[in-house]
Amino acid sequence: MAVQNLRPLIGGRILRGSQPFGMDAAATSEFLDHHGIQAVVDLRSGYERAISPWHLENHEVDLVENPLDPRLASAGLDAIHTAEDLAELYLGWVRARPGWVADSLRPVTQGKRTLIHCSLGKDRTGVVSAVALLAIGTAHRDIVADYAASTEALPAMLQTMAAAWRLAIPEVPEDAFSPSLMLLQSPGAAMEYFLEGFTREFGSATGFLRDAGLSAAELDSLRGV
């Protein structure tokens, strides 16, 4: 088992990926050392972390627990049926929790090679990654491509996650992790709609992050200035 759906952003200063699937202390140590990770930003809620915890004992790695529980941060996950619905979910997060986005990126602004992850590494991680990429001037088409790249990894991750959840919570419905659910997909159209809405509402990502609490020096560091 391992962190899946893993790929670098902004010159490798950010790694985005999934939760640690079944990693013991030895596997964790090997993973962190191999990738030179200095900070881990965990966007999962407490109940998610309990099912697939990190084993960071004896590691000089900053663990930043910055949770966003999708069940509580949305009017209803059951209403996600289209790519636009998925994008509106994401827009709701940045409207309600701009500081959550800024705090997710703060270790990067401190010069630390940072793993940012949630459960599958596509939704919460996708939103934070998209804003970071916007802030450094990445073209929309490239941000969409990065988001859609999660699609290939999803089937295997969903099987692994379903097994872990059913072991911890036997009453989880059989179809809770069905790949047919829009909530568990990563269509490029969802990110296109999100980027259009974000730009329309907030203008620039740097302005959004400044208003969310990042200083000018932190923004310069994020952009590699």
Results as ranks from 00 to 15, higher is better:
Q110L: 15
A2G: 03
E201K: 06
L154W: 00
V40S: 06
S52L: 15
S29C: 08
V41W: 07
S178L: 06
T114I: 05
G224W: 08
E171L: 11
L181D: 03
D85N: 06
S104L: 09
A168V: 12
W165L: 09
I14L: 15
I10Y: 00
D175K: 10
L134R: 14
L6E: 03
Q159K: 13
A212D: 01
L181Y: 02
P67Q: 01
R223W: 11
I116S: 08
D123F: 05
R49N: 04
N66H: 13
V41Q: 08
H35I: 00
D24V: 04
V41D: 00
W93T: 02
G188C: 14
L89Q: 13
R44N: 01
G197S: 07
H81P: 03
S150I: 02
T82L: 00
A75P: 13
G224A: 09
V101S: 11
A135W: 09
D220K: 15
A135V: 11
T199V: 11
G203W: 12
A139E: 14
L91K: 00
D78L: 04
D62G: 13
L63N: 03
R124L: 07
G121D: 10
A145V: 03
E57W: 10
V128S: 04
A102F: 09
V40F: 01
R124G: 10
G11E: 12
L86F: 15
S178E: 00
S215G: 04
R95Q: 12
L56R: 08
R113T: 14
R200D: 15
L86P: 10
A26R: 15
V61Y: 10
L43G: 00
V128N: 03
L115E: 05
Q19G: 06
G11M: 07
P173I: 04
I136F: 03
A25V: 10
T125Q: 12
L167V: 13
Y47T: 12
L91D: 03
W165V: 13
P70Q: 05
L158W: 03
A149H: 11
S104F: 08
V40A: 01
A87G: 15
R113W: 08
S52P: 04
R200I: 05
I10L: 15
V61C: 11
G207V: 04
R13E: 09
G224E: 11
A75E: 15
L91F: 05
Y147H: 10
G121C: 02
N66V: 06
R141Y: 11
E84R: 14
M161G: 12
A145Y: 01
V127Q: 05
G17T: 05
M191T: 00
L222E: 00
T109N: 01
G188E: 12
S18D: 02
L91V: 00
T125L: 11
G188Q: 13
V3H: 06
V3M: 15
A216C: 08
S104V: 08
G12Y: 06
L63C: 07
G36N: 10
S74T: 09
G92Y: 07
S221K: 08
S180K: 14
A96T: 14
A205H: 08
D85A: 02
S204N: 12
D24P: 03
A50G: 02
R124N: 06
Y193T: 13
A2M: 12
S119W: 14
L115F: 00
N66Q: 09
R223H: 14
L6H: 01
P107C: 07
W54P: 04
D78H: 13
